Simulated scan of single mutants.
Amino acid sequence: MKIAVFTDIHGNLKALKSVLEQINNKKVDKVIFVGDIFQRGNEEIECLELLKNSGAICLKGNCELYLEHGVDIDPDVEYLREYYDGMRKKISDGQMEFIRQMPLFYEEEAFGHKMRFSHFLFSDVDAPYPFLQLSSLKNGIFDTACKSKEVTKYDLVVVGHSHQNFENGNVVSVSAAGLEGASFLLIEATEGGLNFERVFIN
């Protein structure tokens, strides 16, 4: 089984078209987008429509949570209130329903290999803002979470959010597809093992 994973498109329609085209050329079995359609770029709605119609499994990032619930769920993003209030007025009821139905995570098992995909590691999956804060990458909380049973029970856990490529145990982070240094992750699961490579986006 071949799975392609990308994340953080941030309103960059040109980048989204490019990554989907490159993924299509890889003849994968599944495509997973792990969140953040909005913010930064100016073609967010076009990106949302393309993702809706792409056949990809689309997961919620923090940007989708802000759009759905408002920025009050995260005290660090008060400065984005005007942006998300305005964006809610621009999208249709059908587009908002699509966002509401996007899951927070997706699990896959292939040839006995267990994988989980989400925008970032969770602090509390049931909380209004379920993810660890980005500061967790510097204060040791992320490292501790990577060693938790909730994470180590999987053979591979794929996240985005940080806009960086890195690995921490079985946790693999993918850089932002819509920003500089864009890449996607290509995973191949076989009876012999679970392998992945980063493919940089042209």
Rank of each mutant, 00 (worst) to 15 (best):
M1I: 09
M1H: 05
I3Q: 01
V5M: 05
D8A: 09
D8N: 14
L13V: 09
L16D: 11
K17V: 07
L20I: 02
E21P: 00
Q22K: 12
Q22C: 04
Q22R: 09
N24A: 15
N24F: 04
K26E: 15
K26I: 01
K27Q: 14
V28M: 02
D29W: 03
K30R: 15
G35M: 11
G35L: 12
D36W: 10
D36S: 11
I37Q: 06
F38Q: 06
R40D: 14
R40K: 15
R40M: 12
E43F: 12
E44T: 09
I45N: 08
L48Y: 03
L51R: 00
N53V: 00
S54Y: 01
C58P: 02
K60T: 07
N62L: 03
E64N: 04
Y66C: 07
E68M: 12
G70Q: 06
D74N: 15
D74A: 07
P75D: 12
V77T: 11
V77F: 14
E78S: 12
E78G: 11
Y79V: 12
Y79P: 00
R81V: 14
E82G: 00
E82F: 03
Y83S: 06
Y84Q: 04
D85G: 02
G86R: 09
K89Y: 13
I91E: 06
I91P: 08
S92P: 05
Q95S: 05
M96F: 12
E97R: 14
E97L: 13
I99A: 14
I99F: 06
M102N: 10
M102H: 04
Y106C: 07
E107N: 07
A110H: 08
H113F: 13
K114I: 04
F117A: 03
F117M: 06
S118G: 14
S118V: 04
H119R: 04
F120E: 01
F122M: 00
S123T: 01
S123D: 15
S123Y: 03
D124C: 01
D124N: 14
V125R: 12
P128V: 09
P128I: 01
P128H: 07
L132A: 03
Q133H: 12
L134D: 13
L134I: 11
S136P: 08
S136R: 00
S136K: 00
L137E: 04
N139G: 08
F142W: 00
A145P: 00
C146Y: 05
C146S: 00
Y154G: 07
D155H: 15
L156P: 02
V157E: 01
V158E: 06
S162Y: 11
S162P: 03
S162H: 09
H163L: 12
H163V: 10
N165R: 13
F166Q: 06
F166E: 07
E167Y: 00
N168M: 14
G169W: 00
S173P: 04
V174Y: 10
A176K: 12
A177M: 09
G178I: 13
E180C: 08
F184Q: 02
F184T: 07
L185F: 11
L186I: 11
L186H: 08
L186E: 14
E188R: 04
A189I: 01
T190G: 10
E191V: 11
E191Q: 13
L194C: 07
L194Q: 05
N195L: 03
N195D: 13
R198K: 13
V199K: 14
F200W: 13
I201R: 07
